[in-house]
Design a protein around this nucleic acid. Structure first.
Lengths: 131, 131
DNA sequence: TGCGTATCTGAGCAGTTCCTCAGATATAGT
DNA sequence: ACTATATCTGAGGAACTGCTCAGATACGCA
């Protein structure tokens, strides 16, 4: 059944909807954030912003089992965040495949500062002000 | 039990670890990405980059139930991504509480383009090259 | 005070995610 | 070919997430 909307709301909604990106882009964007939104993957990517690494070194660096790292690297590879090259000694070297990752981290750190300040100022459940 | 590592690895690992941010920051960063990595929340935030909105208008704009929006807004409020102000007509107006959100979206869209191109070039499971 | 509207809340469930374990696969060197 | 090392893989389970439903709460106004 259709939802009844008075004219003013319809205008606001139509306006707001112009801010939504097209479906395909939104899916990529959301997937990117979800990918970065896991501690293990984030640590792997942070480490790779510094230098290329093999599975075992990554496992030690971020402190999880090699198997777990391997699973996550597969996912990161599928999503084109890292790429792999075979290296001497039968190792596989992983490196970042997109320089935007570092920029996203930087921006998220700015945001983290913002949140930290806000939480320091108002640690309690927010009371909604009436202006 | 300690893991035995030869000197070269130890050096690489120590170097890579310098790229990891301190624990508290990392948690905020990961939480921020996880928050943006959900379609409903992402749509809500995109809509709010355009203009402030009340719960009902947000529900219609992003196409989910009002209850679902309310739950997500509580979470977004707790994480200091949006803030709420009471408005005339017994409505509550939500607006973005951090301008970094828009910058994160922009950067993620650049990344999305990158992924789309990569996927277009190499749609198949990646074969690992040996140089 | 009583009604209507807007928003919030908790419980419960379906779907997803991330890890571990055990074993498979691949390459280098002998 | 055989062995050692490095990485990968699938299955399975514990934990988490996001929705819906039903009802509670809050405010504005007659």
């Amino acid at each position: 059944m259709a939802i009844s909307v008075d004219p003013i709301d319809a205008e606001a909604i139509a306006d707001a909807q112009t801010a939504l990106p097209e479906e395909e882009i939104l899916e990529f964007v959301v997937q990117a954030f979800a990918t970065l939104g896991d501690p293990t993957r984030a640590k792997i990517l942070y480490a790779l912003t510094r230098r290329p690494l093999c599975v075992r070194d990554l496992a030690i660096t971020v402190g999880v089992a090699e198997s777990a790292v391997s699973h996550q690297l597969r996912l990161l590879r599928d999503r084109r965040l890292v790429k792999a090259v075979r290296r001497e000694h039968n190792q596989i070297e992983y490196r970042l495949d997109d320089h935007h990752v570092a920029a996203l981290f930087k921006e998220a750190e700015f945001h983290a500062d913002h949140v930290r300040r806000r939480l320091a100022d108002h640690p309690y459940p927010t009371r909604i002000p009436t202006p």
